[in-house]
Amino acid sequence: MALRVRQTPYGPGMLGLVVSYAVLGIWTLVVLFPLYWLFITSFKLPVQVNDGPVYLPFGDFTPSLHAWRYILVDLRNDTLRPYANTVIVGLTSSVLTLALGAAATYGLTRFNYRVRLSSVAWFMVGIAIAIGAVRLGLPWPLAVASGLAVFVLLRLAMPRRGDATGRALTNADIAFWMISQRMLPPVAVVIPIYILFQRLGMLDTRAALVVSYVAANLPIAVWLLRDYFRTIPLELEESAAIDGATRYQILWSIVLPLALPGLVATFLFIFVLAWNEYLLALFLSSANAQTMPLLVAAQNATRGPQWWYMSVLILLMIGPVIAMAIALERFIARGLLLGAVRG
């Protein structure tokens, strides 16, 4: 056994090894060069940036800490506050997204849902009534309540036909509906969302950002986890069920541990999305809840982009994510979508 070399098609020969390293090396350069450029730009004086390219600190220019000093010392609290907000909002929303997403994904991969089209139709009727009520001048909570009431009433009043008959939406349709919520471009969504949170009195709170990020990233979480959950073998769950475990116990103590790599990778991805989001953050925050991407974008003002400050901010923002990526890398390495359990 000791002699057995793992013979996969990817077990490279000598030539393959050289080619592989060459390609990987080139792509590493492609990835790292822009980051290197950001790094040295953060130590340049404006005149060193504007007067044509210089490449090597201490080589062809003398680095200066002016930009770092400005961001970290002069602006201290104006940098720290958004930074703290970004951390809190990013972590909270990603954890929540993952929790809701994992539950929903488990449901979508283990149950057969049938949402009758008639229910969808009644729901639309409810919405129409709510809209009509608002147009007639009813306060919005009342309008929403009346719409909901109509929907529930209609739903209860209509005779329940057998589940097998009649057109219905299935799991795949629900999943597609979820992902379709990401199709509208953000500019079309942001004003209504603003109005929504304004009516709820939640503007400029971190909670508003958390809620909207959870809603925005849930579809992605569900879709990434779905392929993963499907591949977890059912035998374990079946035997647990026969032993009397509830669905929740099965999910918590069997499925989630098995799905850990997928969960971690998904977490990392939605965390990155929440960490970097700009437009919703711009509108839902004004002073207390501002996040870092706003600060980055703000460096392009009346005097043109302030490259040096912008570089510092981008580097500050990417730091924790890299740390997290390194810490979680071993999990991702075990597979994002398909479990290590398989095969």
Partner: peptide, 9 residues
């Protein structure tokens, strides 16, 4: 790494 930088950045 590139995925982790804010898109504006």
């Amino acid at each position: 790494l590139p995925m982790m930088i804010t898109p504006v950045g």
